[in-house]
Amino acid sequence: MAEVSAGQVARLALLFERHHRALFRYFVSMSNHREQAEDLVQEVFFRMLRYRTSYDPAQSFTAWMYQIARNAGVDQVRKRSAVQVVDIDTYVDRRAELVSASAGPEESASRGQDLALLRRAMDQLPEDKREILVLSRFQGMKHEDIAEVLGCEVGTVKVRVYRAIRALEQIYFALEREKVS
């Protein structure tokens, strides 16, 4: 990014190839909306170009990128001024279809149901908890980088990640009990 910031904008292609999938997954996890997530990926890279001179090479690039991503996400929600209504059942069904076909039919069906339940639990997590879990668990970010993105202490991040997984556990088991009864 330091090179992009210094004027070699073509080097952004390298950053795009390295990070666009992770960014896309972050946005999908936060919005459950593929098209919107693709628009936001585009927006993040555009903002990187636009604000490239504000990048400080001493700062973590990942943290800077997710700061831009969060702002882009917030701006889009404001623009649309309405929360997307997600057809959760369709979404969960589609997720379940994606379960590996290599497993046997029974195992695959049971795993698919568990994963669908887990996905549903993730979707029901409050946004702040889901975000910190996504950044920590799916984006593989260090606690230090998450602290920079969220503007808090590293210790706070650890506590919040722990609380998020515990909240997920509660939702998951509540959904499981619902299914059984």
Partner: peptide, 16 residues
Amino acid sequence: LLPLEEPSGKVRERFY
């Protein structure tokens, strides 16, 4: 174990 979402090819096209 949650499946990973993949972006469509349009993302790359639009970026370039």
